[in-house]
Design a protein around this nucleic acid. Structure first.
Lengths: 140, 140
DNA sequence: CAACTTCTTTAGAATGGTTCTAATTTGTTG
DNA sequence: CAACAAATTAGAACCATTCTAAAGAAGTTG
């Protein structure tokens, strides 16, 4: 059985429906693009460029919409590392990131090997939503 | 001895000179505003509003310039928690943050009580610049 | 302190990522 | 297929931030 390189339209449509999203042409094609290979980091602009390069016709507005919907549906995760742009990550599991400040690149760190201890009790009336660790690195 | 509530102009000017910055009226007054009380989190807009409220005449452009210069001089630190705006922190020591997502508030976590273990070796040719931990909390 | 040089400040324009709007197209359901 | 709801889109609007270029303030030197 050959390694799956890209999702078929049918698989993508199923995945979308499972997430409560109508499988439109754009969404199906974007699923094909985003989840074809392994984990991937992207911005709306980069997805739009990739789509264009792959011959997928989608407006930038739809890319933004889709990225947010996918995030809401748990298919993607947002990563905040840079106040200039918003990153998305296809890896929604437990993990953290290296952020290469020179070129804005993200690299996953497996969540099992990193551990954060000593987080104090959150202020009254608040609950911890998530703990994000960003290891900022520079070319040296 | 009364608790120091605000820096005198002389102290502020010295602090600026020590940081290699000319003590202009605006910078001296901003030092007075920002470092008057203990640790403080802010955005350019919030500083501009506070300045206005305190009768300190400064343009928004100068607030941005100053915040960046102070950061470069090690008087302030930038905190990235939200891709919509840039936060600055008067606490430049070892510490991390709670980020209250509902209202965009930051709360310091002392760096001694929190500990991150298991950070993998950074990719070849890269050096760790800083490790940021953001504990995202929500009102519950 | 006069004359100069160099930084700073500033208003307003420009930028750039992101969101919104209103009109059109597509998907779904009976 | 009709009819309604949902999605797409081009372009305008937004908004935090940066830039520009001109005027003002600080530092220096003799």
């Amino acid at each position: 059985m050959p390694k799956k390189v890209r999702e078929t339209g049918v698989e993508a449509a199923e995945r979308l429906r499972a997430a409560g999203l109508r499988p439109t042409r754009q969404r199906v094609e974007l699923v094909g693009l985003l989840f074809a290979d392994g984990d991937r980091h992207m911005t709306a602009e980069s997805v739009h460029r990739d789509a264009e390069a792959a011959g997928v016709k989608v407006s930038l507005a739809t890319v933004y919409n889709t990225l947010h919907q996918f995030t809401g549906a748990g298919l993607l995760r947002q990563v905040v590392v840079d106040s200039a742009r918003t990153y998305f990550d296809t890896n929604t599991g437990d993990h953290q990131h290296f952020f290469v400040e020179d070129d804005g690149e993200l690299i996953d760190i497996d969540g099992h090997q990193i551990e954060v201890a000593g987080i104090p009790e959150p202020p009254k009336g608040m609950a911890v939503d998530r703990v994000d660790v960003v290891v900022r690195v520079r070319r040296s």
